[in-house]
């Protein structure tokens, strides 16, 4: 079984810091990591390969330094890796990104299954998987937390939903987006990692022309959506002491929570 895994290099948002004076994001010193969900996709792919044979190919789009996540993927057991890198790809929305990735996949050509992380921690959009599946016109299953069986004809998976899960059979070829419940990703093996860094590197870079796209179809120019502005939400704490009887302060607090921009506000 030949599997393509889509991986992305992202800033590590778990250690994100805001400038206490301006409230802006401090980008300096933010380390780049492989998107956490993608680690689970890679683990799943390598496991399937170990059971059924075939090969695992990692594919990423990003600047040249994104090669590091592909090296990591090879350390984890990917056999080949491809980086789609071109100035023309920058500023892409999910439409342009999914188009670029699907053209990269078409250039790789032979695959049975595509795996990717459910969402990336920098954008949290969860759009790339389904959009790539639609460009390629193949079946999709999102929120996958278990892979029960896989063969040339179909793959049976469990999908985590709000109130439980469903078991779904997908015709092959298929694209799955996976969540962290699926497995525990392995660490890269030093031997594979070091090999990926050697003079005769096994990682290939393709630019826009290599995958046969026009620069107006990709990147910012090929995007349908555009960022108008970005801002940092005001996280200043008011340090307000609520006054009144127990009953009054509690109802005051609940009112404030209801008006807050939190996801539980509507449930109160």
């Amino acid at each position: 079984m030949d599997i393509i895994v889509l991986v992305k290099q992202v800033p590590n948002t778990t250690n994100i810091k805001l400038d206490p004076k301006t409230g802006n994001l401090i980008r300096e010193g933010l380390e780049s990591i492989m998107n956490p969900d993608d680690l689970h996709a890679l683990e799943a792919a390598v496991k399937i390969k170990e059971e059924t044979g075939g090969k695992v190919m990692a594919l990423s789009m990003g600047p040249p330094q994104a090669v590091d996540v592909l090296t990591q993927a090879m350390g984890m057991g990917a056999d080949k890796a491809f980086l789609l890198s071109d100035r023309a790809f920058s500023g892409a929305d999910t439409w342009a990104t999914s188009y670029t990735l699907s053209k990269g996949i078409e250039k790789i050509k032979d695959y049975d299954l595509i795996l990717c992380g459910h969402q990336a921690i920098d954008g949290d959009t969860a759009q790339i998987g389904p959009q790539v599946a639609d460009w390629l016109d193949i079946a999709q299953a999102t929120y996958v937390n278990d892979i029960e069986s896989v063969d040339e004809k179909q793959i049976v998976v469990k999908r985590r939903l709000e109130h439980g899960f469903e078991r779904v059979a997908c015709k092959m070829p298929a694209l799955l987006t996976v969540i962290s419940e699926l497995n525990e990703p392995r660490y890269p093996h030093m031997g594979q990692l070091i090999s990926a860094c050697e003079q005769k590197s096994p990682i290939t870079v393709w630019n826009a022309a290599d995958i046969g796209v026009k620069t107006i179809e990709v990147g910012l120019e090929g995007s349908n959506t555009h960022v108008i502005k970005t801002f940092t939400p005001n996280f200043k704490r008011q340090n307000e002491l609520l006054k009144g009887s127990n009953k009054e302060v509690v109802s005051d607090l609940i009112d404030r929570l209801k008006k807050s921009d939190t996801t539980i506000a509507y449930r109160l």
Binding site: P11, I228, F231, P233
Partner: peptide, 17 residues
């Protein structure tokens, strides 16, 4: 919408489609 784990908000428009 929030991005970067809610640390940044981005306003986005879809003008060309």
């Amino acid at each position: 919408r929030p991005a970067f784990g809610g640390n940044v908000m981005a306003t986005i428009a879809c003008r060309y489609a």
